[in-house]
Design a protein around this nucleic acid. Sequence first.
DNA 1: AACAAGTAGTTGAGCTCTCAACACGGAAGC
DNA 2: GCTTCCGTGTTGAGAGCTCAACTACTTGTT
Lengths: 166, 166
Amino acid sequence: MTEHSQTRWLDDREQRIWRTFMSASIELQAHLDRQLRVDAGMPVAYYEILVMLSEAPGRSLRMSRLAELCNSSRSRLSHAVAAMEKSGWVSRCAIEGDRRGAVAKLTDAGYEVLRQAAPGHVTEVRETLFEALTEEQVQVLGEIGAALKARLKERGCSRYGRGDTC
Amino acid sequence: MTEHSQTRWLDDREQRIWRTFMSASIELQAHLDRQLRVDAGMPVAYYEILVMLSEAPGRSLRMSRLAELCNSSRSRLSHAVAAMEKSGWVSRCAIEGDRRGAVAKLTDAGYEVLRQAAPGHVTEVRETLFEALTEEQVQVLGEIGAALKARLKERGCSRYGRGDTC
DNA sequence: AACAAGTAGTTGAGCTCTCAACACGGAAGC
DNA sequence: GCTTCCGTGTTGAGAGCTCAACTACTTGTT
């Protein structure tokens, strides 16, 4: 793609940085997803759900809150929890005071599965991310993440917001 | 998850950085994907394929080479090209000298679709990524991307390599 | 009280991705 | 020449995701 309007294109350096970053983060996600599928039989998205539940008081959270914490649409979470309910890792029940609501609760079996899966996953994160970077890079990575999230939040929902969450 | 073995867990700071980074990059990808679906009727993965083809000599590439360039498995690429062939954006034909091979070629219609899609996508990348970061952060981001890719390459295919590409 | 508007969660259809299996041609050994 | 192994690309099944539509409940307005 070349110039043909008032669009401000990316120069070579920007393009290189952009592509490198995207491909690295996609590969990293794919790598971690594969590791969890092989070793724990679940995609990384499900792992995140289990983690959030395990850290919550009573090991349970309202669906909408859980969706926020997992960067998930309500719909995706609903499907995911339904699948994990079938596996016996999570159970759903009604909430008091709001008859629309539902809470997801981590079962003992789910906790056990998570306990088995966690060491391998954390080790993989450490070895592929933290050990690959210098201390300064790690620091800046945190700042970059925060800046990007802030940026997306501020302008995100206006034009291309998730039909579900926004 | 708490301690219970010799696993070296992430401390609070590492955990915060890790989650912020992952959630930012997932949200960014989702944002760009939605933008392209809405404005150009294609997922970002398809857009990448069209871009790679458009930059190649003869606007065509061998499937396996195209898969590398797009960080895609052969299988995924095959499905994607099949779908885009139906849309008339890409055509496939045999390659000379190796009767196993196949080349994908960007059609004129495909080029036109890409030409329409590119400005919106690039603008979105600029506004959500480059304009959100300082010059120094952009620089470091490039270095981080390169370091992660190198790390994944060096150890990736050994244990959790893609069954297809590796 | 009644109605409109907003919120919570689910569902089904269609799409994309992953994985494993397959078909087939090329390259290397003997 | 034959066999064995590797590389290339496709296919089908099944899993997971997105989107839009829908139900059911709550909140705000008049």
